[in-house]
C-alpha cells in the first residue's frame, strides 16, 4: 500500500520512496525516510492535498506524490 491509501486517522510506516531528484530530496528534508511513522490527519476541502503528521510536524502532500511513497 502507499501513503495515499491511508484514511484520516490511520498510520503507516514508510518503506521506500519511489520519487527521485529534487522531489525526493524535499521529502527527505522534512524527515520522510525509511521507517518513518506517518499519520494521516485529514484532507483539504477539495479532497486533495491531505495533511500528514510527520515527526511532530503537519505537512500537506498531494495524492499524486503520496502514491510514490510506499508503506510497509
Amino acid at each position: 500500500m502507499n501513503l495515499a491509501d491511508l484514511e484520516p486517522g490511520e498510520s503507516g510506516v514508510v518503506q521506500k520512496l519511489l520519487l527521485t531528484g529534487s522531489q525526493r530530496r524535499r521529502l527527505l528534508n522534512i524527515g520522510l525516510l525509511r521507517n518513518t511513522k506517518v499519520q494521516c490527519l485529514g484532507r483539504s476541502p477539495a479532497g486533495d492535498p491531505s495533511a500528514y503528521l510527520i515527526r511532530g510536524a503537519v505537512i500537506a502532500l498531494r495524492a499524486k506524490d503520496c502514491q510514490e511513497i510506499i508503506l510497509s
Partner: peptide
C-alpha cells in the same frame, strides 16, 4: 506537469 508539493502547516 505539476511538481511535488510539501507545505508545512505550522
Amino acid at each position: 506537469e505539476a511538481s511535488s508539493f510539501a507545505l508545512e502547516l505550522p
